[in-house]
């Protein structure tokens, strides 16, 4: 890959070649992770997209869908430090971010960094910890720095949090408030594998073995991929389309038939994240420009936790995904 991508024009052949190389690299990552995880391509793409956009991803799925395996595999492929934090009701913010400990030998307090000081964090069952722990983690996600005692420590780059939620067993949980949910760039819905995939899982991991994943993405590569993604060309009309999508999800704009099902529409963060994710999706496809297809492809993951269904929608058993579907089928594509 080119060392200095900032001097390349987005419409130049050099940039097209760089995009092509980026696509190949991402494809190799996918294939490598695919050696450990069968199927779940959308989840893996979502995680990669989260890393390349500099965002964090919320994952919702029942237990046993290879969420942990996928993220650990990603960490291995990326040559990144990885920590798994199991969120429980008795977890404290200090358990997460670290605390000041007294060192008897020197008679001083020194900072002991918590597990959040890693490149990749798996915040497992994030809704099982109390609000103050969730808040500490979400603040770190946003600020990319942690203050312990009187000293502020930057978090390592890349820094990526994959938080998981279990859609069942809601008893005794602390559901993330909408404002906290909004901080996640995407919410991925993990579904069961197909029968073919499940058979393949059985054949592959029926006998425990280490797939021996190779490191493909280095932190410098991640940085270059991020730079390439940021230079992907987005036409004005695509930007207007993104804004139209987000605006249409809100009730205060022109009335649409599905608005009665919407309690709250998407925030301006959704506009920004749709824009970023669409760019990364174009990079995945090896394109130097964004198409409406890219926006539509990422819209469900970006919008599903930002559009709150109304009571009427719940009465008619319509989910956020249904509302996003209605939204996408209504707003005219440029």
């Amino acid at each position: 890959m080119n060392k200095d991508t900032t001097t390349i024009s987005p419409s130049s052949p050099e940039f097209a070649a760089e995009v092509s190389r980026a696509r190949d690299l991402i494809e190799r990552c996918r294939q490598e992770i695919g050696r450990a995880v069968v199927g779940q391509a959308a989840m893996i793409d979502g995680m990669l997209m989260g890393i390349l956009t500099g965002g964090h991803v919320l994952l919702e799925g029942v237990p046993g869908l290879a969420k942990t395996l996928a993220i650990t595999s990603l960490a291995r492929v990326m040559d990144a430090s990885f920590r798994r934090i199991q969120f429980t009701p008795d977890l404290l913010p200090a358990d997460l971010i670290g605390t000041m400990v007294y060192r008897q030998q020197t008679g001083e307090f020194m900072a002991r960094k918590g597990p959040i000081f890693s490149n990749i964090i798996l915040a497992d069952e994030v809704n099982r910890a109390p609000a103050k722990v969730q808040s500490a983690m979400l603040e770190s996600m946003q600020e990319r720095q942690v203050t312990i005692g009187e000293t502020t420590y930057p978090l390592p780059a890349p820094f990526f949090v994959l938080a998981t939620q279990n859609p069942i067993e809601q008893e005794g949980t602390y559901p993330l408030p909408e404002a906290q949910l909004d901080r996640f760039i995407m919410k991925l819905a993990v579904t069961y594998p197909s029968p073919e995939e499940e058979l393949q899982i059985l054949k592959r991991v029926g006998v425990e073995h280490d797939p021996g994943l190779k490191t493909i993405l280095f932190p410098s590569d991640v940085q270059r991929l991020q730079q390439a993604a940021s230079k992907i060309q987005v036409d004005d009309r695509i930007q207007e389309y993104i804004v139209a999508l987000v605006m249409s999800s809100r009730k205060q704009t022109e009335s649409r038939s599905f608005h009665r099902y919407v309690e709250f529409g998407a925030s301006p963060r959704a506009t920004i994240f749709l824009f970023r994710c669409a760019k990364v999706r174009a990079l995945f496809d090896g394109r130097s420009h964004v198409l409406p297809d890219d926006v539509k492809a990422v819209a469900p993951s970006v919008l599903r936790h930002r559009i709150i269904p109304s009571y009427e929608a719940e009465a008619e058993q319509l989910t956020s995904d249904d509302l996003v579907g209605l939204l996408l089928s209504t707003v005219a594509v440029p």
Binding site: L291, D293, K296, L328, V331, A332, V333
Partner: peptide
Amino acid sequence: GFECRAATSTE
């Protein structure tokens, strides 16, 4: 019979 103005080229 459905809104194709909201469809992308692929669709």
